[in-house]
């Protein structure tokens, strides 16, 4: 073996290695491209059959009736309203917990609370669903019986309603909100805190007037990720949220975009099944919008940090 021959072999190995690594990296592009392609391919046939207007603005969902109706307005609204309510409950609790971890708690306590939050993130969503249906729904049913006692118009749900689902979602987004907010609070330069304290502001004033505004972009990221998590969650709320499509009122039995897909896919056929893929496409569009918003926010945050 000569030196030059050896080098030739080496060069081949080198370029093969580089090609393999490049292919591996391009895998993510390929995956997202094919997911987008197939979501569009399988989500559009029903739109041509039923009509976009009837799907998006129809409020009647009777996919298995003799004269089927495929309006998903209430399903979309349920996902939007449900996510918003979950954010309204989950985000304040999450941000305050993050403040506690980063600013208030002494190290020993933080060392116990932090792993607890991480564990909360690792619990499978079916377990949240199990507790929701076993503990939360009976409680909601009691509340429902009290509030609507004597009502003749209210359809009793046995506690499987929008409110139950919102509470489960609020708990499930907590870890995301807490972790990302905490990281961004810790990343605030200590000089900001020191300056605020030196000017005579109290600790609480410093937290709410100086530190949180400085951590703004991180906290917005946390909220957007929370929205993504809540709107995409399926298994935890499928059984908890009820089994019929209604307007998103707190004590109504409702179907989210995700839960409609999960609970009807098993027995759906023909146009009904195609419609479920259309619902999937709507969800996919929501998620892509959230992703793009997220990228913009992150870029803006990076640009501000760079200044």
């Amino acid at each position: 073996m000569t030196i030059t021959g050896k080098n030739k072999n080496k060069a081949v190995v080198e370029s093969v290695a580089q090609i393999i690594f490049t292919v591996c990296a391009s895998f993510a592009i390929l995956a997202v491209a094919s997911i987008t392609l197939y979501m569009i391919l399988s989500g559009t046939p029903a739109i041509f059959k039923v009509g976009l207007k009837e799907i998006l603005f129809g409020t009647v969902w009777k996919p298995t009736a003799a004269e089927p109706k495929f309006g998903i307005l209430y399903v979309i609204l349920t996902s939007v309203v449900g996510t918003m309510l979950a954010i309204l409950i989950g985000v304040p609790v999450g941000i305050l917990t993050a403040v506690f971890l980063a600013e208030v708690a002494d190290k020993r306590i933080a060392r116990i609370v932090k792993p607890a939050v991480e564990l909360l993130a690792g619990i499978p969503s079916v377990i949240y669903g199990l507790l929701g249906i076993y503990l939360l729904n009976p409680l909601m049913y009691k509340l429902e019986l009290k509030i609507f006692a004597g009502s003749t118009t209210h359809q009793f749900t046995g506690g499987a309603n929008l409110l139950s689902a919102v509470l489960v979602l609020a708990i499930m987004i907590l870890p995301t909100v807490i972790n990302i907010s905490e990281t961004s609070i810790r990343a605030v330069p200590p000089s900001i805190k020191a300056a605020s304290l030196a000017l005579g502001a109290s600790h609480i004033q410093t937290i709410f007037r100086s530190i949180l505004p400085a951590a703004k972009s991180g906290i917005v990221t946390a909220i957007v990720l929370g929205v993504g998590r809540a709107i995409g969650e399926a298994m935890a709320i499928t059984l908890v949220s009820g089994s019929s499509v209604n307007a998103p009122l707190p004590f109504n039995s409702v179907r989210f975009l995700t839960t409609a897909i999960v609970s009807e896919m098993g027995y759906s056929q023909g146009t009904h099944r195609q419609m479920l893929f259309t619902i999937g496409l709507v969800l996919f569009v929501f998620i892509m919008l959230i992703n793009i918003a997220l990228t913009k926010i992150l870029k803006k945050g990076a640009a501000e940090d760079g200044e």
């Binding site: 997911i35 399926a234 999960v262």
Partner: peptide, 24 residues
């Protein structure tokens, strides 16, 4: 592009992965 799509992949909900897997 790779970083954006990797980020996107981690944000796609599992129901969508399920639908894609079923079809593809």
């Amino acid at each position: 592009l790779i970083e954006f799509t990797t980020e996107t992949l981690s944000g796609i909900p599992s129901v969508i992965f399920g639908l894609f897997g079923m079809v593809f």
